[in-house]
Deep mutational scan, measured.
Amino acid sequence: VKVFRALYTFEPRTPDELYFEEGDIIYITDMSDTNWWKGTSKGRTGLIPSNYVAEQ
């Protein structure tokens, strides 16, 4: 598990995607895809765009 911080707010387009706000901490559990990672924030899990976060 790696810890990342959201650089921007992300509004999901599908139920599989995770909503998060700029500054949120996201725990990444799967980075197997280059563009979409699986992450958890505020008790919810979903896909996030990798270019919206920076490693802490």
Score class of each variant (00 low, 15 high):
W36D: 01
W37N: 01
W37L: 05
E21F: 07
F10D: 00
Y8W: 11
T40M: 13
T9S: 12
P12T: 05
I28M: 07
S50H: 07
V53F: 07
A54L: 13
I28S: 00
I26G: 00
W37S: 00
M31S: 08
G46V: 01
N35L: 14
T40S: 13
P15I: 09
F4I: 03
W37H: 02
S41R: 15
D24F: 04
T29G: 04
F10K: 04
D30Q: 06
G23Y: 03
S41D: 02
A6L: 04
I26L: 13
T45N: 09
P15V: 10
P49F: 05
K38V: 15
E55I: 14
G39F: 02
Y8F: 12
D24Q: 08
F10P: 01
E22Y: 08
S41K: 04
Q56S: 14
F20C: 03
I25L: 14
K38F: 15
F10Q: 05
R44E: 06
T34N: 13
Y52P: 02
I26D: 00
I48S: 02
S41N: 11
G46I: 02
E17R: 05
D30V: 05
L18E: 00
G23N: 07
S50K: 10
F4Y: 14
T40K: 08
P15N: 10
D33F: 04
E17N: 03
V3L: 12
W36F: 08
T29N: 08
D24P: 01
A6R: 00
K2P: 09
T40N: 11
T29Q: 09
P12A: 10
T29D: 09
T34C: 12
S50D: 02
D30S: 06
Y52W: 07
T45Q: 10
E21T: 09
L7K: 08
L18C: 02
A6W: 03
I28D: 00
V1A: 13
E55C: 10
E21R: 10
G46F: 02
A54P: 02
E55Q: 11
A6Q: 01
P15K: 12
V53A: 03
L7M: 10
R44W: 05
R13W: 05
V1E: 11
T9Q: 06
E55F: 12
P12C: 06
G46Y: 02
G23M: 03
D30A: 05
T14Y: 12
D16E: 14
E21D: 07
E11R: 11
K2L: 11
K38L: 15
I48A: 03
E21H: 08
E55L: 13
R13P: 04
I26K: 00
N51G: 12
I25N: 03
G43W: 03
L47M: 13
G23T: 02
D16W: 13
D33C: 06
D16Q: 12
D16C: 10
V1K: 11
G23Q: 02
L18Q: 00
T9W: 04
K2F: 12
V53M: 10
S41G: 04
K38Q: 12
I25G: 01
